[in-house]
Write a protein that binds this DNA or RNA. Structure first.
Lengths: 316, 316
DNA sequence: ATGAAAGCGCTAACAT
DNA sequence: ATGTTAGCGCTTTCAT
């Protein structure tokens, strides 16, 4: 009653406030939710086997930026993680339909992710981090994977490289496919024939980059474009083991601008993706949607930028 | 009514279930909470300026392991992060008293953290990751900082080092103080006099390690013990810039066994702390407490283990 | 300007 | 074994 009503005041107002504060009174969210139908809770659903989840800096940065944006707008963030032994169906329907969440941000979806259907039928407002061509109506924020990968590959070509290998991301994820696509676009635009022996699939982790590089060595590339910095670092580790020098014998390029990429010797040439922008944009998009369901959220594609460091060199 | 009652069944049970499933029916948590007084929600409160938060692998691993344990026990995890412009008092009292949380896990507290008082007055069941001597009654899980740091320092001493510098963690945090204390214990046990010029305070970040190392160089150490791997890596960067070779000219040791520490050249000697164990233990402790408030949770100290890699060498 | 009352969707205790 | 009912703590509406 005394919560926000502008009419009650002159009388006891001040005294009530004092007492409330001193007793740490907080209105019970559950009761409030029951009538207002709002929880002020946003769920971040990371639909990825957890083993991969926190090996790179991407998710931490994403979580942080989303949490920050949520806090700023008085929302809470709850983390919905998939564990290996989680019953996904159960978790999804529970999470999405129990009314615990005002909205959801989902990320790291595979192409045929069951979450997408759940999201649709649930009618829960949501925003994707990473777009999905099969569900264009779900608003999303993403980096421009195709053009980023193309830019990097073009850069390697401009350095005189012809035998450019690639370590792709998981090809069952959009980002993996698109970066691969960008790579092929650049090759074909430069009139370089695509060679299957120069492609190896990874899963964004360092280990997968290491393994992929070992396989690629047989094809004698002069450069390699890895679809994530972690894989690029794994590749460099494999190269070091086999006494290839970077960048003298082979140029290595990554994707994502992981802070760690400045550390390795030589520091890694990479495509910058501003993860905090991704997270903040997604959160603000969702919150705008929640505050006014009539707004039509427009999906966004954030730019990437080439960062040249010391792991690539010209072979002119 | 039909939820779990063991008596209702034989009749329509099955049909009701089918319909429920097909309509994605989920009981409304808010209403349920209102009467049961349980939310199945656990809050992870990270009481640290976010700038530091995700620069290392510690928090990601901690979050992941806690989330995993929570999911396993049908709890949700909500993340309570401090942003630079957050009103801490408001956030605390809201979070702790609004009944949104069945319990809390708090970490990264500074010595006089206001959260501790809030936690006490709120009566909310909670577990600390990282103990606090001023609040021994709050159950906690921690790694053995003192003995870990002592072990590492003893190891450096056993390698023949005498002029051992240290880059401490934040001295307003228990872990920072204790690792420093372990370092001093080892020195004094070996009869080496403590030299203030060989100590520099950092804040666990790589940048602070870099800066600290620059300052320490004037004191001509033959070894340096950094209280975190990230600081050790910053130190190695500073050393590389000034042409000190590791480990030929100076040995470098870290703390925490960050995965990244295997990457640097040379790979980093460090103290292993099993972060997933920290998180899981904390979560399970809290959940046990929630399920049966009569249990008295016993604080735990998890062991650390010396991992010798290539950044340290004997100067015998 | 203030007080009273209805009802959100559930659970638990009770009555059949 | 099943159906009925009270009330959890709030917001909102309506009556004073």
């Amino acid at each position: 009653v005394f919560n926000k009503h502008p009419s009650v005041s002159p009388e006891v107002r001040e005294r009530v406030w004092q007492i409330a504060l001193s007793k740490h009174y907080q209105p019970c969210q559950a009761a409030r939710t029951l009538v207002t139908r709002r929880t002020n809770m946003i769920g971040l659903i990371i639909s990825e086997p957890i083993t991969r989840l926190f090996t790179g800096p991407f998710f931490p940065a994403l979580i942080q930026s989303i949490a920050e944006a949520c806090n700023q707008h008085k929302y809470y963030l709850t983390l919905v993680l998939m564990t290996t032994n989680t019953d996904r169906e159960a978790l999804y329907s529970q999470t999405l339909h129990s009314g615990q969440l005002d909205g959801a941000i989902a990320t790291s979806l595979v192409l045929d992710d069951p979450l997408l259907l759940h999201l649709q039928t649930s009618q829960l407002p949501c925003v994707l981090v990473g777009h999905h061509p099969g569900y264009p109506q779900i608003p999303s924020v993403d980096v421009d994977n195709v053009s980023g990968a193309r830019t990097m590959t073009e850069y390697l070509i401009s350095l005189g490289h012809r035998r450019i290998a690639t370590i792709t991301g998981p090809l069952n994820m959009i980002s993996g496919q698109e970066r691969f696509q960008g790579y092929r676009q650049a090759l074909s635009q430069a009139g370089i024939e695509y060679d299957d022996a120069l492609t190896a699939e990874g899963d964004y982790t360092e280990e997968s980059g290491f393994d992929a590089m070992k396989r690629l060595l047989r094809a004698n590339p002069t450069a390699v474009f890895a679809a994530s910095d972690m894989m690029a670092m794994g590749a460099m580790k494999a190269l070091a083991q086999t006494r290839w020098r970077v960048p003298e014998d082979i140029s290595v390029a990554g994707y994502g601008d992981a802070p760690i990429a400045t550390f390795v010797e030589p520091s890694l040439t990479t495509m910058q993706q501003v993860v905090p922008d991704l997270g903040r944009t997604a959160a603000e998009m969702l919150i705008a949607l929640l505050n006014d369901p009539s707004v039509v959220a427009r999906s966004q594609l954030l730019p990437t930028r080439l960062i040249v460091r010391h792991s690539t060199r010209s072979i002119a």
